[in-house]
Design a protein around this nucleic acid. Sequence first.
DNA 1: GAAACCTGAGCGTGATATGAA
DNA 2: GTTCATATCACGCTCAGGTTT
Lengths: 347, 347
Amino acid sequence: MSPTHEVPDGKRPTLADVAARANVSTALVSIVIRGTKGASAATRERVLQAAKDIGYRPDTRARLLRSHRSRLLGVQFELQSAFHTDLVEGIYAAAEPAGYQIALSAVAPSRSEQQAVDTLLADRCEALILLGPQAPAARLAELAAQLPVVSLARRLRASAGNVEVVRTADEEGARQAVDHLVALGHRDIAHVDGGRAPGAADRRRGYRTAMVRHGLAAHVRVLPGGLTEDDGSAAARTLLTTRPRPTGVLAFNDRCATGLLDTFLRAAVPVPGGISVIGFDDSRLARLAHIDLTTVGQDIPRMAALAVGRAIARLDGEPADEPAPGTETVIAPHLITRGTTAPPTTA
Amino acid sequence: MSPTHEVPDGKRPTLADVAARANVSTALVSIVIRGTKGASAATRERVLQAAKDIGYRPDTRARLLRSHRSRLLGVQFELQSAFHTDLVEGIYAAAEPAGYQIALSAVAPSRSEQQAVDTLLADRCEALILLGPQAPAARLAELAAQLPVVSLARRLRASAGNVEVVRTADEEGARQAVDHLVALGHRDIAHVDGGRAPGAADRRRGYRTAMVRHGLAAHVRVLPGGLTEDDGSAAARTLLTTRPRPTGVLAFNDRCATGLLDTFLRAAVPVPGGISVIGFDDSRLARLAHIDLTTVGQDIPRMAALAVGRAIARLDGEPADEPAPGTETVIAPHLITRGTTAPPTTA
DNA sequence: GAAACCTGAGCGTGATATGAA
DNA sequence: GTTCATATCACGCTCAGGTTT
């Protein structure tokens, strides 16, 4: 009937409560809880037992208020993006061993980036890791004047001064995809692009230059696409009515590629028999057995770890007076060959 | 070159800094910042200007430490579940107008529910909203003895005393799906289940009882499935080798249904021509133009709003001394008819 | 008496200084 | 000198109570 733990008053137990129960000072309890040296093994055990008895938990707020370092990394991400949630998972994995906590702040249709960042700042995060931020570069630079800011998966011009950038070499990834198709014998290769999405411009450029380098400038064809399955599906319907139909397509990302696949399938255009399709990201989607998508892989755990690493490096380095120029960390993508690419069938 | 805002020392500006600049006391600044009455319009403006000048932002932690109410709702969710991220979005939307903040804590392969809850408790959340929690009911009951706990989308026995439950009537949803197929003329209807996932048992039971009620007990067939596309795909492969093959399938959720669809498609079994498929959730996936999945819709915004509402109701009601029994709020699902169901073709 | 403002205390910690074994 | 323990203050803020117009 009664609660499991003996809560003195209905309030949560504090250091003082533990101290009273263990007959020591609050300072000593603090020492024991933090695991610092300065307490004998005997009292240590006694204090820990007392803490356990009354269900004591340290109060993060009070703790962070007192210690000037918060060891808190603020992470802004898009709730709906599987790519982002994968990155967040990697960020957790990288931050906790390094002794940093994560404060999540989501961006959604009903919640702007501005709101997301505001709450992170109010929570006194020491650094910000922004996933594919859409905010203007100037705004990011302004933020970066206040605290270390890492832009993950969005490229920024050097003019965005102090912002750290961690991203995949999108241009190179698109090149690898085109090279792969060309090596298989394809010549007529289209690209369904990502519009204004982060990375889209680079991938488009990578596609173009690779085509040109292979002497296929005449076959360059960029279709307006986007990030979602619907975008891919729409582009596929366009492609189906096109003559001559390309024998290979590079999609902006895996979701877009999935839309392509599905629509081709319904139109009885076999993949890869009738047309080859390549995605981008190597998301969970691409790995699904029935999708089995050839794709340009981004090394998500590594990107996440590097983002955390850069943020921490900034924190350990010079704090604000002598701002180091923003560094750009570019990670190589790698093509993952699966079942949606094959040599073209000579018609 | 220098930061935009004049930061006194490299530290962030505090109430005292604003007070000094506006020539008032910190208490008055506090009043102005919070928008409480007790300051003249003139000083109000002067203080706000000063705050803006030096880029002051209230420190949530200090603020919450002092005021006994934290107005913080802790939300535990699964990073990889689109259903969960949709709910989170709804929770944000419901909480902020009510004057509550959200603290997110993710569950991922590398991060347990225990860890997720621990950080929420350390952050002094006033109540917990747990999305599809897998923890044992006893553990949840223990938590609920300390603070209001809402289990969203997971049913709990009455024995889990104090826990609030907000969920969809899964059994009823499955019934609606079966009714729809039967009305179309189907008799041989299979169910690909969700194993131990939250809601799976109820949906299984709903399917069974509905089949029996229609006099189709002989056709009851439950295939082991799961939450992912791969699970659906595997079940589809089983179904393809089954004679007689069912003419309709109810999948555990939309992802599972998508796996079914895709595999049927590849096997040249048209949907809904050769077989009808129904999903569950009405996730973004189901609405995609090229999927166009008939599905049992869960009212996600409403579930989110109700979860927040129940948590707040608990906070406004009796705090701990006289624990009210856990309430169960059950939301009706509704079938959404799209393009994957049709009358069976008589072979 | 109200409106506008200030003073002082304390929320739960962590760090420093200091003392006792 | 080292180990163990304590007292005291400060972190940034809110709130109760007081003072002045």
